[in-house]
Design a protein around this nucleic acid. Sequence first.
DNA 1: TCACAGGGAGAAGGGGGTTCTCTTTCGCGG
DNA 2: CCGCGAAAGAGAACCCCCTTCTCCCTGTGA
Lengths: 224, 224
Amino acid sequence: MSVNEVPADATMPATRRELAVARALDSARSRAENRVELFLDAARELMNTNATDFTVQEVVERSGQSLRTFYQYFAGKYELLLALFEESVEGAAVQLELVIAERDDPIERLHAFCVEYNRMCRTSAPGEPVIGPAPALVEFAQQLLTSHPKEAAHAFAPVVELLGRLLDDADAAGALRPGLDRRRIAGVVLQATMFNAFAATISASPPGSGGEVLWDLLVHGIST
Amino acid sequence: MSVNEVPADATMPATRRELAVARALDSARSRAENRVELFLDAARELMNTNATDFTVQEVVERSGQSLRTFYQYFAGKYELLLALFEESVEGAAVQLELVIAERDDPIERLHAFCVEYNRMCRTSAPGEPVIGPAPALVEFAQQLLTSHPKEAAHAFAPVVELLGRLLDDADAAGALRPGLDRRRIAGVVLQATMFNAFAATISASPPGSGGEVLWDLLVHGIST
DNA sequence: TCACAGGGAGAAGGGGGTTCTCTTTCGCGG
DNA sequence: CCGCGAAAGAGAACCCCCTTCTCCCTGTGA
């Protein structure tokens, strides 16, 4: 970070003394951010290679840091997973925005959202390129939903808001059946889309086109 | 078990010798079944009181048996949970049959199934009477679905078959949109119904009437 | 009565998350 | 340059929990 920059969230310092403090904090912050990034990167790599779960020890070893440092930055493994999960959701939201930007029709945008999100959530089978979240993240998401609903809602916010906007747009365009509780629908749609793997395993269906089936089911429920 | 009874799955013995063997096996079986029941009961009680998770130690202590015996009957904690889960699903199927038996119209039966199953799956909030599965079972179900799809499908079979029958009936009555993959639909419906808690947490909705919302969404997708 | 399978008690092993202690390193003021 | 104190590396220690193992008692059939 260059000397001319000032941390975005710091109030502008008025005196030399405050400036010095701010600068010190700034450098500390940047160091801390790098550290955190080290841990997050290590964990991501482990999740992508190991395929299954990872241990805190492994993260520490891979990051070249020490156990002590880890627990200075994260209150526990739980927080590390939460951080990874939040970033994963944010990344998903960004990618969904890209896909949606290519469409104009509100219903088409909804369609694209559902199919693409379903594709992204599908934990990649061995062999095909890794796109979705690691199984560890999926499991964590499930646990989060049942044991910490509050934080789960917060973590999911980017995707929920995006879907909410799409629903509002579709409604404004008159494409939705009137009287729908759009917030609730958003929840149902996300949940069904995300955990659709269940439907695949339980009915032994080919896992490919679940998104379209879901969409088909969904659209005939919400279109006028 | 009385002397006159014969294990249902044993072939009828022809000689005294075979009869003796069968009787010995029979008594051993009955003892084993009692034992297993002890463990299952203890685990159920723990889940209903402790609310969170239970340890094998606690099950052993509560059942009055020994650790050694436990591992003689169950390959591990996993199998105990699986057994509990299977029985829970069977119980759910029985109760659903009862509720459905009160209706005649195929669509009404589907409706009843969805709403009731959703209600049963809702892990009871503190305060209200305990009806649904313990959180430990819900978590186990989720893990099972992602890590052992085969066994998960088997465990869910009673409910899946029931729903499949209802869908077939509705289709035969001409109440379903033609061309639906009913097996897949069953999976989607079950998944959405069961894990609907997500929709509630994510949209901070009152958890009461999720079943009806889901049904509303669903029926306008599958009715002609 | 004796031999032995069954099983109770609980120690031991092993993995994993979390905490603690010792020690080194490093930046900085004197 | 020196010494001090904060940061942090190494890893031992602790605790919880699942699983295994060993020892020994008891009840039962020959």
